[in-house]
């Protein structure tokens, strides 16, 4: 049997050492990488393509959920957390595996065993992460940072920096002032995960930051144009205009 390649992600060195030491006792496990924050985690997982990732939830920059969201093809993941009431409920809902610190060798082995023997189809995993995110959102935990592509690097945008997000030539782009970055998420996913207090689906292919809207200009056939503070004009469809009116009656 081929060895299972594992990447460990935790911002605390003792926690990584402990995982590495305990994993070394399990036969057929090979730790091929370590990361100490969300950005490194994305880089390592994309580059090394592990069979399994052990992912801490609370990390500076981008948390474990943000990492999962930013990965195009996430490997099977075991989340690790010290204590997070929100997350625990989300795990129950999504049936994704998790470990509570400090975990025992037995508990770790059981989780790793499950991950190795369960063959995750990509669809099943996507479904599980979908219900994980939905559950987080239900509990009012919205996305605070979005991982985007900045040339070869991955960059973390505070969602408040984003003016609007739109699909251009098949690529989802997040616009901040002058710059625009590609992101791998989908508009449908972002529409759910971004706080509806601030973000609004203006059109089939556009999400706009409500705080950035300067003017709402009547256009043809009861549709509108939204002019942002940056001067950009975006389409507001007739159906969505009705929704927006509920927020800002005009």
């Amino acid at each position: 049997m081929n060895s299972t390649k594992v990447v460990i992600v935790d911002d605390e060195a003792p926690a990584r050492e402990r995982l590495r030491r305990m994993l070394s006792k399990i036969e057929g496990i090979e730790v091929i990488g370590e990361a100490e924050d969300g950005l490194q985690a994305i880089e390592q997982i994309e580059r090394l393509q592990p069979d399994l990732a052990l992912l801490d939830i609370q990390m500076p920059g981008l948390d474990g959920f943000g990492v999962l969201d930013a990965l195009q093809k996430p490997p099977p993941i075991i989340f690790v957390t010290a204590y997070d009431a929100y997350a625990l409920r989300a795990f129950e809902v999504s049936a994704l595996d998790y470990l509570l610190k400090p975990y025992s060798q037995d508990r770790l082995e059981a989780a790793v065993h499950r991950a190795r023997t369960t063959t995750f189809s990509k669809g099943a995993l996507a479904q599980r992460s979908g219900s994980l995110f939905e559950s987080l959102v239900e509990q009012g935990r919205y996305l605070t940072r979005l991982a985007v592509q900045d040339r070869e690097k991955i960059r973390l945008l505070d969602v408040s920096e984003i003016d609007w997000i739109g699909i251009e030539q098949g690529v989802l782009m997040a616009h901040t002032g002058e710059a625009a970055y590609a992101t791998r998420s989908t508009l449908d996913n972002l529409e759910v995960r971004l706080d509806p207090e601030h973000f609004f689906r203006a059109h089939r292919s556009v999400i706009v930051n409500l705080d950035q809207i300067q003017e709402i200009i009547p256009w043809f056939k009861s549709s509108y144009k939204l002019r942002l503070n940056t001067g950009v004009e975006l389409d507001l469809s007739r159906a969505r205009a009705r929704e927006l009116r509920k927020r800002f009656p005009w």
Binding site: E12, Q58, A82, Y83, L100, K101, P102
Partner: peptide
């Protein structure tokens, strides 16, 4: 959170 991380 502090307690469990420290124990770990």
């Amino acid at each position: 959170h502090f307690l469990f991380n420290t124990l770990n």
